[in-house]
Simulated scan of single mutants.
Amino acid sequence: MMGTAKKDPDLGMLTGQLMRAIQEELFQTLAGQGHPHVRPRHGSILAFLHPEGVRATDLSARSGQHKQIVGTIVDELVGLGYVRREPDPRDRRAKLVVPTEHGMDEIAKARAILAAIEHRHRQALGSDAYTAFKDTFQRVVEHQRAWRDTCDDPPGTDPSGA
C-alpha cells in the first residue's frame, strides 16, 4: 500500500486552512445576521477598533498592514456605514476612525461568533487539550512576531529597495 500514506501538512498549510475555515464561518454567519458586505479585509480593521476611535496609524501598526492599505479599507468601511472619521480631540490635525452603531453591532456579533466557534472546538477536543493547543499556538505566534520585530531585512528582500 505504498503511495497511500498521507503526507503530514506543514505549519503554513494548517494555519492557512484554519484561518480560511474560521473566516468562512465567521463571514457567512455575519452575512446572515445583517452584515452581508463585510469581508475579511474589513475584519482586519474592525477587529482593532474601540468605541472612542483609533488613529489610522495605530490601525496600521496593530493590523500589520501598510498605512495606504488601511486608508483604502477605512474608505470602504465609511462607504458601507461601519465607521466614520472624526477629528482627534488630542490633536486636531489627526483623525480617528470611530465605529458607527452599525459597526459596533458587527464587532459585537463577530466577537460572539468567534466565541461560539472557540467554545465548539473546546467541547470537541476537551478543555485540557484545547487549552494546551491554544497556549502552544500563542507561543508560536509570539515566537514568529519576535522574529519579525528583530529582522531588519527578511529573507528574499532587497534592503536597497531595488
Rank of each mutant, 00 (worst) to 15 (best):
G32K: 14
L11Q: 05
D158C: 08
D91N: 15
R39I: 11
Q68L: 11
Q17F: 08
R85N: 06
K95A: 12
T150G: 11
A146R: 13
D149W: 10
Q17K: 14
R62S: 12
G126E: 03
A61W: 15
I73G: 00
G43E: 05
T57F: 10
E142K: 14
T150F: 10
L114R: 14
R90F: 11
R39K: 15
L46A: 04
D105E: 13
R148L: 15
R39A: 13
P51Q: 06
V83K: 02
S63F: 03
Q28Y: 13
G16C: 03
Q23C: 09
D158T: 09
P51Y: 02
R62A: 13
S60V: 07
G16E: 04
V54E: 12
A124Y: 02
D153T: 12
F27W: 06
T157K: 05
D128N: 00
G32N: 14
R20N: 14
G34I: 07
T57C: 10
M1W: 07
A112N: 08
T72R: 14
A47L: 10
E25I: 10
A61N: 15
P154D: 03
D158H: 09
E106T: 10
E25A: 10
A146I: 06
G64V: 06
R145N: 12
V54Y: 04
G126A: 03
L49K: 02
A146K: 11
D135K: 01
P99H: 05
A5F: 15
A5G: 14
L77A: 05
A146F: 13
L14I: 09
G103V: 02
L18G: 05
A21L: 10
I117D: 02
E52I: 05
D149N: 11
V74A: 03
G156T: 02
V54D: 02
L14A: 07
P155Q: 06
D75E: 07
H50T: 13
K134L: 01
V78Y: 02
Q23Y: 12
T136Y: 07
D58A: 15
T15K: 07
A31Q: 07
A129G: 01
R93N: 14
R148C: 09
P36Q: 05
D75L: 05
